[in-house]
């Protein structure tokens, strides 16, 4: 497939009436719909913000603007990497696309990790749960929905990354199918273990424990993380021709549209939920 490198016009698909590829149009329309989802959720948050209960907790006492600003920055950087991935595959540069996608996954995972940390802190230290205040209800539902979108995006990135190793005639090759599944599993495993290990490390340091204690207490977790990373590197070794190339640029581009959209929504949420409280 990658043999027609450079012959595909990525801005015009002659098989459609408008020249816009079907997948791109589908994604744009879906994002319009998704806008409405977030519109409804953000409205709910803002409406309840204007009608607080007398004993409502003050968001300023709960939010940690430094952490959220950091994760916002990371998410923006991931958008940059996503854009690089699209450009790379449009030029047929598979290797560069893989690296960009992996970086995007990495940044997305950091964002998710920050969110897990934030939720944990809010619940355990700030004592704001989803049930004990309206702020908790709207905050966790809204940011949780966004987090789910990011998680779906990361999963999609992983699937796309692994798919870029798919050999031709894959349908006849059951071994490849299993390998594919294992590849996905180890990446997801690595991400989850990395997030939990980092959280555990932060927790250990917060509570005055030493790094040594952390290694001692989480040996199995760290070993698993290393194993997953090693397996991921092994599975990513070149194994011959792949059925993935410039023709798949539209798949990557649609995924990119989704990813950018989720980032933009985060900017809106960051403004409407966090920054608004500091005006």
């Amino acid at each position: 497939m990658s043999s027609h490198a450079g012959t595909i016009d990525h801005h015009h698909d002659p098989s459609t009436s408008t020249g816009i590829p079907n997948k791109k149009l589908l994604m744009w329309t879906f994002l319009a719909s998704d806008c409405m989802f977030f519109g409804a959720l953000i409205s709910t948050h803002l409406i309840y913000r204007l009608h607080p209960m007398p004993d409502a907790p003050s968001p300023k006492n709960i939010f940690s603007l430094e952490l959220t600003s950091f994760s916002t920055f990371i998410l923006l950087m991931s958008s940059l990497m996503m854009a690089l991935a699209v450009t790379a595959i449009q030029k047929g540069n598979l290797k560069s696309m893989r690296w960009s996608i992996l970086t995007t996954i990495f940044f997305g995972s950091i964002f998710l990790g920050c969110q897990v940390y934030e939720f944990q802190e809010f619940v355990e230290i700030k004592k704001m749960t989803i049930t004990n205040s309206m702020l908790g209800t709207t905050f966790y539902t809204l940011t949780g929905t966004h987090g789910t979108h990011v998680a779906i995006g990361v999963l999609w990135l992983i699937l796309m990354y692994v798919r870029s190793f798919q050999p031709p005639e894959a349908g006849r090759n059951a071994a490849w199918f299993i390998r594919h599944a294992v590849h996905i599993t180890v990446i997801i495993g690595a991400i989850l273990l990395a997030i939990f290990a980092t959280l555990a490390l932060v927790h250990t340091l917060h509570t005055g424990g030493s790094i040594g204690a952390f290694f001692g207490g989480h040996f199995a977790m760290l070993a698993g993380l290393l194993a997953c990373i090693a397996a991921g590197i092994y599975l990513a070794r070149p194994t011959g021709p792949v059925n993935f190339g410039e023709a798949n640029a539209i798949d990557v581009e649609s995924m990119g549209l989704y990813w950018h959209f989720v980032d933009i929504v985060w900017i809106v949420i960051f403004t409407a939920v966090y920054l608004l409280e500091y005006l």
Binding site: A32, S33, D34, M36, F37, G39, A40, L41, T44
Partner: peptide
């Protein structure tokens, strides 16, 4: 596409 999200939410 534009109205169903509201009932979904």
């Amino acid at each position: 596409v534009l109205s169903f999200p509201f009932i979904t939410i």
